[in-house]
Design a protein around this nucleic acid. Structure first.
Lengths: 200, 200
DNA sequence: GTCTATAGAACGATAGAC
DNA sequence: GTCTATCGTTCTATAGAC
């Protein structure tokens, strides 16, 4: 039988990073950004504070790493939908059609997002780093939209980056409203608005 | 000279309430909802806790009273704009054209709003009370829109309440994005999107 | 004299320091 | 793990309007 090889340093490092990210995702979802200490994340992952600070420069950095993963996990899905010609979802994924379980998970992520936005508004350094992600998300979104319009052979109704910004605003705003007051987010608000914004 | 008359009970009561609300608005804007104690509000108004609890049943109630004022101060403006046929603004007032000072004040209100939404998500009683305000704001918005379409003699492109919800979502989402990342909220995003949503 | 707005003490919960 | 500080809320006493 193949000898169980020791992990290389890089493998071990990557595995630790992964464990820390997963623990952080879980802890943040459970208790929010402010409700979690670095110690709690480290302990949940089976490490200590030292491990966290070896991989991330601070708590903000840890959250931003999660956001980066979230954005890149999600972009392919949105792009696929776009290329199929269906309405797009972004970080407020499929509000309408989501199953309760999915709603709960986007709810956790959504409230974490809100909390971090609030946090960023009180610290310019963090706000700048978050703003970079917003710009990138907007540009990715715009690129996907552009592909779709090109494929369909028609022109976007607004300048493509404005359209992407508007969609992000609407989606985020609608999910925020939905958290507080689901009863006004009735069937079709999402899809009909998106359709109206996107279709020629 | 007219003898300085003692205030009647009702006058004094109304004045106290007003002073408390103004102090609360100021303190909340400065330090956020969680950053302010009832004592601090009372002291800033020149009273003590007892006065606060004589007028408001608790801290949430104090914030909700401010929100109610904010919503009713703003509704007439939005309605007037609607009736003039111009694009509408709501609590994300005139993102495009606002002077820096105005931006700063909506920024304070925006972060307070975000904080209270987050707060409400952890307490169903509060969330319900906030949800009532959302429904009322949506309904007021819908009524204004309906008036405008009736006056112009044309039909809304979506069911009127869906349209109102979509506009609220977009406006709030855009102001949120603008707080973090003003550079992607370029000139015209607001007005062109609103126009596209509203116009036949 | 009665009623009530307000002051201020008291209480229970929670978070942070050490 | 204990101690302390702080905060939201409740309770009671009182001064002044009616």
């Amino acid at each position: 039988m193949e000898q169980k090889r020791r992990m290389t340093r890089d493998e071990a490092k990557a595995q630790t990073r992964r464990a820390l990210l997963e623990a952080a995702a879980d802890q943040f979802a459970r208790h929010g950004f402010n409700g979690v200490s670095i110690d709690a994340v480290a302990e949940a992952a089976g490490y200590t504070k030292g491990a966290v600070y070896a991989h991330f420069s601070n708590k903000d950095d840890l959250y931003l790493a999660l956001l980066d993963e979230h954005l890149s996990d999600e972009a392919p899905g949105a792009t696929a939908q776009l290329e199929s010609g269906a309405p797009i979802a972004s970080f407020a994924d499929e509000l309408e059609d989501a199953l309760p379980g999915q709603i709960e998970s986007t709810r956790d992520w959504g409230s974490l997002t809100l909390e971090f936005i609030l946090h960023s508004m009180r610290d310019d350094t963090v706000r700048g780093r978050l703003a970079e992600r917003f710009v990138r998300a907007r540009d990715d979104y715009a690129a996907s939209l552009e592909k779709r319009y090109a494929a369909n052979g028609d022109a976007p109704p607004l300048e493509i980056k404005k359209l992407a910004t508007a969609l992000m605003a609407f989606e985020n705003g609608l999910s925020m409203i939905g958290f507080v007051c689901p009863e006004i987010v009735t069937d079709g608000v999402y899809s009909e608005t998106i359709a109206r914004l996107l279709d020629r």
